[in-house]
Each structure stands twice: as structure tokens, then as C-alpha cells.
Write a protein that binds this DNA or RNA. Structure first.
Lengths: 143, 143
DNA sequence: CTAGCTGCAAAGAGTTTGCAACTGT
DNA sequence: ACAGTTGCAAACTCTTTGCAGCTAG
């Protein structure tokens, strides 16, 4: 059987591949959104209902420490995960629907580096989230 | 006795001013950092050890809802508060010491507006945090 | 006077952990 | 074989809440 992208990454890192980890890796490999633990648990249960929540917590933490997954916390304080292999980007969260839109802008990146440097720091990480509401036609016209 | 800045704000908003709220408002008025609840509790206890943690939670939430305080969560997921009357700014967190440096940059603000608009959204909020390590002399020279 | 606030202790949400049984390598 | 992993339930941390008594306006 074909290995999922995340399973392959796990192997490269020399992680012991248990049934549970395989399932978790596969489920997250095909996830293109930003599920929280509860959501991950639900998806896992569709595949193997015997996997416990504790294992999911442990595995997601492990994957995060191994930089296989990225952990986010958007506003609500609930941990959400996404595949770390996707290229660097930020998130715009729709305040109404909660929908998450990914974006990347080079100018922001450069500016952040610059700001950090001017404060006497080397930038080692950053977090940027925009919260917005859809532009109405009216507002679009005005602008 | 002179009212603290935050006490005044509370009165303007028509909040009932209990002893506890006064103490909490005063302690936060003189705080120029970003204390978490535990830290706020400690400071409160120096002034009036009988004020309960529950009251502090309730009051900080109230103050936040009234836009008297701003709540932040930097990386660690612990709520931190700061006086909302300070002007808009972002934070650079020193990864080594945890020290928090405030900064403001107009170009970032403009860029964010622009990005949101280009995605079809009106920007209603944002969060930006930089994480850095102090530049060493070496690195300073190189740059 | 009384609506709203407080302190206490108990409950809740989300997450971690101790331990005995189990399993990948 | 055996170090590392799992499932379970209990523990933990941070935060909220029910309730009886208290207090600002």
C-alpha cells in the first residue's frame, strides 16, 4: 500500500510507526484544512474507532515537536493543526463563518524582518492573523 | 483620593464600583506590562488579600468586554492583559527571556488592510506577534 | 431597598500523565 | 526481547458557575 506523505516523513525521522500513528498521519495527510483536536478525533474514529483521545493528543504533540505538523491557535484558544509541509503562509479568518483563508505576501515577510532588526532582534518566528468580514458590493464600489 | 485612569473609565461606563473593582482597576492602571491572571492575582493580593481569584476572573472579563482592557495570548496560551487605552501596537517577544517589546509600524497596518481587501474582506481585527532573539554584535556587524 | 457583586467550593473544558498491557523493530 | 507506545481513568490547569450573603447606589 502507498504511504501517505506524512507517513513517509515519519519514517524519515525514524519514528516508530504504530497502527495508530499511521492512521493519524494518513488522516492529516489528506486534511487540507485546520482541524482542532476534536475534529481530528472524529475523523480518526471514522477509520479506527478504537484509537483513544490520549493517543491523539500524544501523537499530535509528537508530530508538532518533530515539525511534521504546525499548531495554531486562532482567537478562540483552541489548538488547530495543519500539515507543516505546506509552504509558509498566514491566515485570514472570516469573523462570520469562521472560514479560514490562507495567504502569503512577501512584503509582510520583509517588513517583519526589518522591524525585528530595527528593535535589535533576529526574527525567529512570527504569527500573523487577520480577522475580516466579507466586503459587500457597496463597499467594493466605494473603494 | 485621586482616581486612577481605569477607575475613571469604569465610572464613565457606568459600572458599579465595588472595593474589589477599584483595587483591580488601580493595580492594572499602574501596570505597564502584560500580566497574566496569576500575576494580576499576586499584585492584587499585595493590596487586598481577601479578593478572590473568581472575582479577578469575572472582573477582567468584564473589563475586557467593556474594552477597558485588552486580552492577549502569546504562544503559551495563557491570557495576558493590558490597559486598552494605550495606543495600537504589536509585540515582539524575546524567545530567550520572554521580555515583551511593543512596536508600531504604519506600513504593516496599511499592508494588512490591503491584503484583506484583495482577498475580498474588510479588516476588522488582526494579530501580529514577532518572536526573536537579540542580535549579537557579530550579526549586527554583518548586516 | 434591591439588583448586582462577592467568596467559596464545586463543576467544566481541554489536556496531560501513571500504569499495566501490548507491539514494532 | 524490550524500549517505546497504547488505552484507560485519574489528575491537572485554567476558567466558569451556583448559591447564599453582602453592598453600592
Amino acid at each position: 500500500m502507498r504511504l501517505s506523505h506524512l507517513e513517509k516523513t515519519c519514517q524519515e525521522k525514524g519514528l516508530r510507526m504504530t497502527t495508530q500513528r499511521r492512521v493519524i498521519a494518513r488522516v492529516l495527510s489528506v486534511s487540507e484544512d485546520h482541524p482542532n483536536i476534536e475534529e481530528v478525533y472524529k475523523r480518526i474514529q471514522q477509520v479506527d474507532p478504537k484509537i483513544s483521545l490520549a493517543t491523539i493528543y500524544r501523537t499530535l504533540r509528537l508530530f508538532q515537536e518533530e515539525h511534521i505538523l504546525k499548531r495554531h491557535e486562532f482567537g478562540d484558544g483552541i489548538a488547530r493543526y495543519e500539515n507543516a509541509s505546506v509552504e509558509h503562509h498566514h491566515h485570514l479568518i472570516d469573523k462570520g463563518t469562521g472560514q479560514i483563508i490562507e495567504f502569503y505576501d512577501d512584503r509582510i515577510e520583509t517588513l517583519q524582518q526589518e522591524i525585528a532588526k530595527s528593535l535589535g532582534y533576529e526574527l525567529v518566528g512570527h504569527r500573523l492573523e487577520l480577522y475580516g468580514v466579507p466586503l459587500t458590493k457597496d463597499k467594493k464600489k466605494k473603494s
